Amino acid sequence: IGISRTPMREALQCLSQDGYITIIPSKGFMIRQLNEKDMKDSIQIRCAIEGFCTTVIASQTDTKEGKELLRSLKMILDNMEEALNSDALEDFIYYDHQFHLLIVNYLHNDEFNQIFQRLLYLIHLTSQDALSTEGRIQGTVDEHLAYYNALKEGDGQKAYNIMIEHLMMPLKVHEKVREKKSEKK
């Protein structure tokens, strides 16, 4: 492709660090596939980060920055509903990610933001997998709305519980799919 090996190696190293590819020693690389361990690991990290962020946000919903976050979350919820009604799955996933990014970015914690950015590819794969299950798109909207309402009402514990349950949902969906496949055998 007209470039030397060093920049190519560096680019592949960056793609590997960001989780897009898996480097296979002495063979090359392959696009990273979603497996159960990666899904579980990324969801646990998200629970830790977004759960903590929710606790902080809930204590600040009456501040100027907290009220602005609530307005932004509501706008994204409206966009999600619009994408849901137009059957635009990629748009829906985009707004779903924006919803969660707002929560993580609220703390202005560079480490949280970097970890979350590195997880985005796995989050995207997990979202596509979970949302392909019947009823999960509407379930996601309902969960986001319940989370938003709990924050708006100042119920941090309820918001936290909703967020953790919401983030764990892809594992439950994956488990149900696996059970159905084993029943067919």
Rank of each mutant, 00 (worst) to 15 (best):
Lys185Glu: 15
Thr126Leu: 14
Tyr94Asn: 00
Leu89Pro: 00
Cys53Tyr: 09
Ser86Phe: 07
Gly51Ala: 12
Val141Phe: 14
Glu134Asn: 05
Ala130Trp: 14
Phe92Gln: 00
Arg46Lys: 14
Gln157Cys: 07
Glu175Gln: 06
Ser182Met: 11
Arg5Glu: 08
Lys27Val: 04
Phe112Asn: 10
Ser132Met: 03
Thr63Phe: 01
Tyr148Phe: 09
Met75Phe: 07
Lys185Val: 08
Asp87Cys: 02
Tyr148Gln: 00
Asn85Asp: 07
Ile49Ala: 13
Lys27Pro: 01
Thr61Val: 14
Gly19Arg: 05
Glu50Asn: 10
His108Glu: 15
Asp142Gly: 00
Ile43His: 12
Phe112Lys: 03
Met168Asn: 14
Ser182Ile: 05
Cys53Gln: 07
Asp38Glu: 10
Glu153Trp: 09
Lys40Trp: 15
Glu50Thr: 08
Lys27Asn: 04
Thr133Leu: 05
Asp41Ser: 12
Ile162His: 05
Ser127Phe: 14
Asp18Thr: 06
Thr133Gln: 07
Glu50Asp: 13
Glu82Trp: 09
Ala58Tyr: 11
Pro170Lys: 10
Val141Glu: 03
Lys185Pro: 07
Val173His: 08
Leu122His: 05
Asp62Tyr: 09
Asp129Thr: 06
Glu82Lys: 04
Leu145Phe: 05
Thr63Arg: 00
Gly135Ile: 02
Leu12Gln: 08
Lys64Cys: 02
Leu119Phe: 12
Leu107Glu: 15
Lys64Leu: 04
Leu15Pro: 06
Lys158Leu: 08
His174Gly: 01
Leu69Arg: 01
Gly139Pro: 00
Tyr160Gln: 07
Asn113Ile: 09
Leu34Pro: 06
Asn113Phe: 00
Glu183Gln: 12
Gln157Trp: 13
Leu167Cys: 14
Val56Gly: 02
Tyr20Cys: 04
Leu34Ile: 05
Asp38Thr: 07
Arg9Cys: 13
Phe99Val: 00
Asn161Trp: 06
Ile76Ala: 01
Asn161Gln: 11
Arg9Pro: 08
Leu77Met: 03
Glu183Ala: 12
Glu134Met: 05
Lys40Val: 09
